[in-house]
């Protein structure tokens, strides 16, 4: 069982990240996935979070407790959620938006300029898909093919191709990062 938190600020597509991963893993990845999200005033504007539990068996307790993976796309979200991350967990950040504290415990940390890459591809709104590509490469939670199957229907049809391009960009960057051993 793996507990994952995606976090950032409202409007970055944080909820969408967990939806894409949950859909891909539960419909095409042969896993059980349960997704919950922050809801209410805290989800509007400030630190926003979506949670995903991925398991080989049915998920019984629906909320994450001590996440093994934290994805942060804003400083506020990082500051709010970093302390929850498991001591030997995995931290993935947008390096231009989050200045991490010195490493804690055995946490492994990876970073990607997801917003910058998205802007280079033409629209910062697809930063979350760059992040999802990077996330897939780093975590190896499933293949890029399976993860990409989660995207159609969760982004506007006319921007599907652009979103997949963003995913590929992040995925390739993730593979390079792993190769460099960083």
């Amino acid at each position: 069982m793996t507990e994952i938190r995606f976090s950032g600020f409202g409007g970055q597509g944080i909820i969408r990240c967990a939806l894409i991963a949950g859909k891909a893993l539960s419909l095409y990845g042969n896993k059980f996935a349960t997704m919950t999200q922050s809801f209410g005033p805290e989800a509007r504007g400030s630190a926003c979070s979506s949670q995903l539990i991925v398991s080989d068996d049915r998920v019984l307790y629906p909320y994450i407790t001590i996440p093994e993976i934290l994805v942060s796309m804003s400083q506020e979200a990082y500051d709010k959620y970093e302390s929850d991350l498991k001591d030997d967990g995995l931290l993935i950040i947008d390096q231009d938006l989050v200045k991490p504290k010195p490493p804690r415990g055995k946490i492994k940390s990876y970073s990607v300029p997801s917003t910058r890459f998205a802007e280079e591809l033409g629209n910062r709104i697809i930063a979350n898909l760059v992040m999802m590509g990077f996330f897939t490469a780093i975590t190896k939670i499933t293949t890029s093919e399976v993860m990409k199957k989660g995207v159609p229907g969760l982004v506007p049809d006319r921007f599907l191709e652009l979103n997949l391009k963003a995913f590929d960009k992040g995925y390739e960057y993730g593979l390079e990062t792993l190769k460099k051993g960083k």
Partner: peptide, 9 residues
Amino acid sequence: ECIGHMHEK
């Protein structure tokens, strides 16, 4: 609310 807002297959 928990089930209402929870996504699953």
